[in-house]
Design a protein around this nucleic acid. Sequence first.
RNA 1: CGAGGCGUGGCUCAGCUUGGUAGAGCGCUGCGUUCGGGACGCAGAGGCCGCAGGUUCAAAUCCUGUCGCCUCGACCA
Length: 466
Amino acid sequence: MEEDFAKWYTDVVLKAELVDYSSVKGCVVLRPHAYALWENIQAILDASFKRTGHENVYMPLLIPESLLQREKDHVEGFAPEVAWVTHGGTEPLTERLCIRPTSETLFCEHYSHVVQSWRDLPKLYNQWCSVLRWEKSTRPFLRHREFLWQEGHTAHATPEEAMEETLRMLDVYADLAENSLAMPVVKGKKTDSEKFAGAVSTYTIECMMHDGKALQSGTSHFFGDGFAKAFDILFTDRDNQLKPVFQTSWGLSTRIIGGIIMTHGDNSGLVLPPRIAPLQVIIVPVASHKPGVTERANLLEQELRAAGLRVKTDNSDASPGWKFAEHEMKGVPLRIELGPRDIEAGQCVLARRTGGKLVSPLDGIADAVKAELDSIQAELLDRARANLAEKTSVAHDLDDMACIAREKGGFIKTMWCGSNACEELVKDKTGGMKSRCMPFDQEDLGGHCAVCGGKAETMLYWGYQY
RNA sequence: CGAGGCGUGGCUCAGCUUGGUAGAGCGCUGCGUUCGGGACGCAGAGGCCGCAGGUUCAAAUCCUGUCGCCUCGACCA
């Protein structure tokens, strides 16, 4: 892992049976283990969306070229990486259709049809789908050509309400990351050079990976009324004036699975936080040919399942050692070892994926298991927080930054004057480090921009990115 | 898009220099013995060597082209 992080990552992804490559670059098979992980993430997010008043819809896969081109900044941002459908059967199409790289234009067209009055607002829609972006280089989860995500698109009567929505949904992502995925985040606003194509402002949650690179794990955009004007999404307000709506969009993708792998994984493979692990407990019977072992293991499984846990018994005929290694590779948070000696003593062995074993009485085992899982969840968050803290540095000038970037990577916190020129300079001097975000949690690190020495406007996080 | 690496049973690879009957380990199937950290024995199955041309009596091997994959950079959720 330490020697070659990239190879470690690819190995884990393949050996943990998360993905299989397909014959099209950047389009991978999500195997049951990966898809179950995504379903668990989906379930949590979807419940949050519903709780905050959103409805799910489904937009078409295809976007006519003319529609994509309605908003200038948006099309400029995405045009280089869209794939085009040019033929229907053998007939060339009169207008080529792009496969959605994101669905702003489709939502906008639809909103222009259904929004008439202030009474129609807000529109709080979300869709779960896949999108296609013709990336040049790809890596499992981190950069696919086709990837699964959700994209929320909302329309509001006022900018204040839209901004409130933008930040509310960023909080939903931050909550998912920290409380379910055990990934601490830095929340903040993107600089102008890093914001989404067509947005007025972009907000992000940034996570720190084990190798010192940052992962943008979810984004939420405030669009102002730019799209509304380009797509004629107009409504009659209470004062009988025709006004454009104010919009937001926000998305989180299967990329987050890459983040989970790179946040928690270790040299034995994947480590999954219990809240989203497809399998929370694996029971490994030892000497299962001995009378009563398999039966007791199955009983234990039933008891844990009845307690609401995701559990399985590994009854395959592989050796126990092989099973231990296998389920560690797949990241199962807790293993229960159960052999004849245990059964005789009325106990079993609980082995945490994060290390450590303890003997627990079979009587009242479900509560003990739940307590262990909670403790593992908390331990993972603590560890990740420690990693984030350890990999966050403060710098006061460009030499500092270059030095920290070279030796340590991670996040660098500095003051910043707000100029793009300084961002470019940092990129040059550090071999590619970019601004990550202007954090909501601002600290006063002095009055001067660390890059140019000019008057500082804000604190900024920098980092190498995935 | 630049640089490098690689395409030979499911996987990892050998064979190619010097053309001549397609190999190994792991995995897989069956039976038996095992079982507290990747067990063992025996018996099996499985590949027109990425694809297309060419040279040759003969091509996994030589030549040309092409497609794809991986890694690292440049650009982007």
